[in-house]
Design a protein around this nucleic acid. Structure first.
Lengths: 343, 343
DNA sequence: ATAATAAATTCACGCGCGTAAATTTTCTAC
DNA sequence: GTAGAAAATTTACGCGCGTGAATTTATTAT
């Protein structure tokens, strides 16, 4: 490879014997130029490895190839995994994904939306904070930028929502738990950050009533995104103060369950479904760490890949075709029961 | 606030009654203009909320305000936490951090460096993959872009390295374990992805010999960044095949230990330091999840904040003063023993 | 071979801002 | 009040590329 002293597209066009506008066309869509031209450009490309200046490109294009990915809390491996999937799809489609985390903070989420706006992205995939989100701000943003919401819904905001069917998740698990033992109580945070939590509680109540059992919700105090910590602290308290009405505990999500199991262990309560076990514990999400709790956590698995794939797909459609004609798209994926040793 | 129909700096300069070049100066450094001018600009800014076009800014500036942050594996909450700290510092200093994860893949790391180059960043904070990194590629990159390596060192590459003192980590733990019970064997991956692992093994051997014990290394098979999985699978195998020469196991890192503890639990081996415990298990790093294993994991805590702070500090110095005169800076922070129930 | 069509090229302008040089205004000190 | 310094302004150019209109060249059909 010749040393690349190519400074701009002008020079590159010169040495490859093609006009600059044609080269420009090539970089925006290689298939838009004649085959013979394309070959010549690509040959020159191998010898000189030139890349157009991103800033100049983005300045002049009506729409950039940027795609924003916003998650509420990146220290949660669940979002890291989803972000990874999404990133890959975007890159494969020739886009430039940029990842942001709100780190659980409302102000940061708003700042991110502001930054994103000035990046003039082709589209944005947004998993909002939920309750902590600034609904008005998100709404304004979605009016300016094609945005798909995922994981956590804000009713009526954004051009589509892709997530999980929380009702199906919870009834699946409640059915299973009732079928195999004592009906569960429901362990959740009193003021959950995520709107999915509310859906899950309601689904729990509904499922229990359907089966003819009395629903019993145990509420943990605590704020923020340190769910394991809350599950642990409040698990200890629940055990000590005998707040658990049953010996089967269905946690609103796996991270709470991870903390709760740690509390059980510390208090010498054996978790599991076998004889000699004091307590059954289950969760939702199939968090990456759920396989490594002691005992491994029985849970309902989110369909990570389906969610990320479908979100990206919806965004691409939105970018190409503009806002859809009909209603706001909502896709909810079903979960899969993952039976492990904890319940 | 008046509706912002401001389309560019020209218009904004006009309505605020200041010349465009002066406004430009203001945005590059508000303190570089006269106080009275600054006030006038900021008043206009409140009424019209104009923001300069990022792409046009970056195109013409010698150096952008972008700072690249590259981590090897974002699904590891350790890196998510560090990234968060770094992001915040950069924003506070008026920079624009952009986060990338190599997701454990060499090709992706190289791609990221390529992308980063075209972003013309003021500087980059890079936690390389380690063994899987393309040394030559990273080296070339560091020659073009001011780069600080952190967490994982590549000898001689980059303008500085900020990390942890693995020797101190391990001797701290070995001392503790020997002082309070049987000397530990060392559980690690046979071909660790991270160069820190090699340092830790050597440190273990050295520490044991210093104390007059025979070092015993147990090697786990397995590749990649799914450390918990490896720890679990190989933990099961080690227990079944009675490969553990002692009843105290020092894991190379916490994620391995998390998997190992899960294996112990499954095999009915009680982990802990009390009577009735079959095995003591310890790790290194104080991974965010280590507090929630069963039992909670005894470990050596990385100084997350010191590492991220010092890295950012070193990068800013590098950006301002250019390459330093003397040797490549290497800063190693000491760890803190965190005694929990597992050992 | 010629006409009709498609692709490539040339030409020209614009995007929004950085920045340097020259000039004017404002500030500071005496 | 004036000289000198400092800040602001004016002027002018350039960054690297997108893009549209007009023109030329290449391709395909007749």
């Amino acid at each position: 490879m010749n040393e690349s002293k190519i400074r701009n597209m002008e020079e590159f066009a010169a040495i490859s014997g093609i006009s600059r506008p044609t080269v420009s066309k090539y970089f925006n869509d290689p298939s838009s130029v004649r085959q013979s031209t394309r070959v010549r450009i690509e040959e020159a490309l191998e010898r000189y490895d030139f890349r157009p200046n991103i800033f100049a490109m983005n300045q002049n294009r009506r729409l950039t190839k940027n795609i924003g990915i916003v998650v509420p809390y990146l220290a949660d491996p669940f979002f890291a995994e989803i972000a990874r999937n999404i990133e890959r799809r975007c890159i494969d489609a020739g886009f430039w994904p940029i990842l942001f985390s709100a780190h659980g903070e409302r102000k940061l989420e708003n700042d991110i939306l502001d930054s994103l706006r000035s990046l003039r992205p082709a589209g944005v995939l947004l998993a909002p904070l939920g309750r902590a989100s600034d609904r008005a701000a998100v709404e304004r943003f979605c009016q300016d930028v094609p945005t798909i919401l995922f994981d956590s819904n804000i009713e009526g905001v954004g051009h589509a929502f892709i997530g999980s069917d929380n009702f199906q998740f919870v009834s699946l698990m409640v059915d299973y738990l009732c079928r195999t033992g004592e009906p569960p109580c429901f362990f959740e945070m009193r003021t959950p950050a995520n709107p999915n939590a509310n859906k899950r509680r309601n689904a729990y109540i509904q499922a229990m009533e359907r089966l003819g059992h009395a629903p019993q919700v145990v509420r943990a105090e605590g704020e923020g995104w340190g769910f394991e910590e809350v599950g642990y602290i409040e698990g200890l308290r629940a055990i000590e103060q005998r707040l658990l009405p049953t010996s089967t505990v269905l946690c609103s999500n796996d991270r709470l369950a991870i903390g709760f199991i740690a509390a059980c262990y510390e208090r010498g309560l054996r978790v599991g479904r076998g004889p000699g076990s004091a307590l059954r514990v289950a969760g939702h999400d199939d968090h990456p760490f759920s396989r490594f709790t002691c005992p491994p956590l029985t849970t309902v698995a989110q369909n990570y890949e389906a969610i990320s794939d479908r979100s990206v797909e919806a965004l691409f459609a939105l970018i190409q075709n503009g806002a859809p004609q009909g209603d706001r798209l909502e896709v909810l994926f079903e979960g899969r029961l993952v039976m492990r040793a904890s319940a």
